[in-house]
Simulated scan of single mutants.
Amino acid sequence: MLALFLSVLFSVTIVFIFKYFSRFGVDTFQALIVNYITCVVVGWLASGAPSLEPLRAGGAWLVAAVALGGLFIGTFYLVAITAQRVGVSAASVANKMSLILPVLFNLLVLRLSQRPYTFINYAGMALALLAILLTALPRRSTAAAPDGTAPAAAWWLPLLLFVSSGAGDSLLNFASSTLLPDAATRTLFPLVTFATAGTIGLLILLSRVAKGGQQFAAKNVLAGIILGIPNYFSIYFLIKALGNFGNDGAFVYPIANVATILLGAVGAAFLFREQLGARGRVGLATAVVALVLISYQEIVAAF
């Protein structure tokens, strides 16, 4: 349970760092590229310069790591354009609701649940989705985006974000359960994933710089380094949490997402004085109930 808690803690830290980006005028895309490079360096140092033998041998795990890296940077881009053209809340909802896909993938394809997924667990899952909707669903608005696009005209962006985010989580669950047979491979997998995302992002940035459309700022480097440290450990501990719970994504992903919402809301209230409306408070209460229902077997076992 400690690995899962640490993954949530680092995930929430990432959200808070992004909040400060807007305050200090940090270019998020540039910082994200530096963040991925930082993830590789931190992971390399934290693992004590791991063996590269699995990398030289290649295999399905390497293909999965490269594909996941592409999904990482692609999903981030979709979050950005969905927030711009449809709304921040719509992007948040689509990203969070995507937990449906890895849960169904785990239950129907991997079938790795360590305990029977009972009616109580399914009720908790339904409440988790309701909690996400209550805390992130945007208020009705007919305002157009800054580029003139009406939100309704870009309905496909949240859908694509939903699929991309869910596919990434499902692929991570599949790789963790099937493609990582030893410690060396498990260590290299996130490093290759982050390296791929960073390489793709760097190529895009260099193309923009060459066209004169963007300049690189030093403060974005510092911001990317600060972001990269918790980002690496959020994925590192997520993989460990999946392993600790028998790669049971049907348990891990709902717990991780709902706990991130809860801890993020509490932290935002203290750090940024953000206030939730009545619907948001009901959403947080619903999230607490969802956590209890999803993990009630573990709670009973603990007592």
Rank of each mutant, 00 (worst) to 15 (best):
M1H: 10
L6D: 08
S7W: 09
S11T: 13
T13D: 12
I14H: 07
Y20M: 14
Y20Q: 14
F21N: 05
A31P: 07
L32V: 14
V40Y: 04
W44H: 06
L45I: 14
L52R: 12
E53F: 04
E53L: 10
P54N: 05
G59W: 12
W61V: 02
V66A: 01
A67T: 08
G69I: 02
F76R: 02
Y77F: 11
L78R: 06
V79S: 04
G87A: 09
N95D: 07
M97F: 13
L104Q: 01
F105W: 10
L107H: 07
L108K: 01
L110M: 01
S113M: 01
N121W: 04
Y122I: 14
L129H: 11
L130Q: 13
I132N: 01
I132W: 01
L133E: 13
A136S: 15
A145W: 09
G148Y: 00
A150D: 10
W156E: 13
L157D: 03
P158T: 08
V163G: 14
S164F: 12
S165N: 11
A167I: 07
D169Q: 00
S177E: 12
L179N: 00
L180R: 00
L180V: 08
T185Y: 09
R186M: 12
L191D: 00
V192N: 10
T193D: 01
I200V: 05
L205A: 02
S207A: 14
R208N: 08
A218I: 09
L227M: 10
I229W: 08
G246Y: 04
N247Y: 12
T260A: 02
I261F: 15
A269G: 15
E274R: 09
L276S: 02
G277E: 04
G283H: 09
L284F: 03
T286K: 01
V289C: 01
L291S: 06
L293N: 03
E298W: 13
